[in-house]
Amino acid sequence: MSTNYPIMLRLKGKKIVAVGGGKVAERKVKGLLGTGALVSVVSPELTSELTRLVGNGDIIWKQKSFSPEDIQEAFLIFVATSDEGVNQFVRSVAKDHQLVMIADDPEGSDFHVPAQVQRGRLSITVSTGGSSPILAGKIREQLERQFDEKYSEYLEFLFSKRQWILKEVKDSSLKKKLLTAIVSEEFLKSENKEEDFQHLLWFLGKNT
């Protein structure tokens, strides 16, 4: 059995097409919001939420049945209509370089979207390889409780301090100690991370 290859994609400016306007397509489209992707939905009708996103200018709606030219320049294609024949037709006309996900045919898809926990810069994904999306969802719920909203602020702190340390600290030993120390329970729970970092910098610098 071949395994899937996990990857995080930068989609800013990429053209993404969702074929279908129901609840499944809605979930896929909502997962793309905030990525900077250029999202189009091809469907005669839309859910109320997708209609709202069109009204907000978040996505483009092609109010029509699918035709091959709709995916001509697409980077990713999400196929989620209620008609298996249409879904397979989209698959058949996609080019070899285009990645296609078919909601009702995981084995015939090039990729699938894992269950995801997002806390600012922190992304945690869970996949069961298409065997049980329900189990993946349950595991995601456990992770959401474990990695709560405080991780958003903590990741911003880690990002900014890592950039500063790499740029300003020349001593390789001190650099490693600082990078290791800030990834700790104490800094995660700290009410004043900046002050604690300055104390750490003084202490380690003094003893290096």
Score class of each variant (00 low, 15 high):
residue 28 K to Y: 07
residue 29 V to G: 01
residue 29 V to C: 02
residue 29 V to M: 00
residue 29 V to S: 00
residue 29 V to Q: 00
residue 30 K to L: 15
residue 30 K to N: 09
residue 30 K to H: 05
residue 31 G to V: 04
residue 31 G to H: 00
residue 31 G to Q: 01
residue 31 G to I: 00
residue 31 G to L: 01
residue 31 G to N: 03
residue 31 G to C: 01
residue 31 G to P: 02
residue 32 L to N: 03
residue 33 L to Y: 04
residue 34 G to N: 08
residue 34 G to H: 05
residue 34 G to M: 08
residue 35 T to L: 12
residue 35 T to Y: 12
residue 35 T to R: 07
residue 36 G to W: 07
residue 37 A to P: 01
residue 38 L to I: 14
residue 38 L to V: 14
residue 39 V to D: 09
residue 40 S to E: 11
residue 40 S to M: 02
residue 40 S to I: 02
residue 40 S to D: 10
residue 41 V to M: 07
residue 42 V to N: 02
residue 42 V to F: 01
residue 42 V to G: 05
residue 43 S to P: 04
residue 43 S to E: 00
residue 44 P to I: 02
residue 44 P to R: 01
residue 44 P to G: 00
residue 46 L to H: 07
residue 46 L to Q: 10
residue 47 T to L: 10
residue 47 T to M: 09
residue 48 S to L: 11
residue 49 E to M: 03
residue 49 E to I: 13
residue 50 L to D: 08
residue 50 L to N: 07
residue 51 T to V: 02
residue 52 R to G: 06
residue 52 R to F: 08
residue 52 R to W: 03
residue 53 L to Y: 15
residue 53 L to I: 14
residue 53 L to F: 13
residue 53 L to Q: 13
residue 56 N to W: 05
residue 56 N to A: 14
residue 57 G to E: 04
residue 57 G to S: 00
residue 58 D to F: 12
residue 58 D to H: 06
residue 58 D to I: 01
residue 58 D to L: 11
residue 60 I to C: 04
residue 61 W to V: 03
residue 61 W to Q: 05
residue 62 K to T: 12
residue 62 K to G: 05
residue 63 Q to T: 09
residue 63 Q to P: 10
residue 64 K to R: 15
residue 65 S to H: 14
residue 66 F to C: 06
residue 66 F to S: 05
residue 66 F to W: 06
residue 66 F to A: 04
residue 67 S to K: 14
residue 67 S to W: 06
residue 68 P to Q: 08
residue 68 P to R: 11
residue 68 P to D: 08
residue 68 P to E: 13
residue 69 E to W: 04
residue 69 E to A: 08
residue 70 D to Y: 05
residue 70 D to P: 04
residue 71 I to G: 07
residue 71 I to F: 04
residue 71 I to V: 13
residue 72 Q to N: 15
residue 72 Q to V: 15
residue 73 E to L: 07
residue 73 E to I: 03
residue 73 E to R: 10
residue 74 A to R: 11
residue 75 F to Y: 13
residue 75 F to G: 00
residue 75 F to M: 02
residue 75 F to T: 05
residue 75 F to E: 01
residue 75 F to S: 04
residue 75 F to I: 00
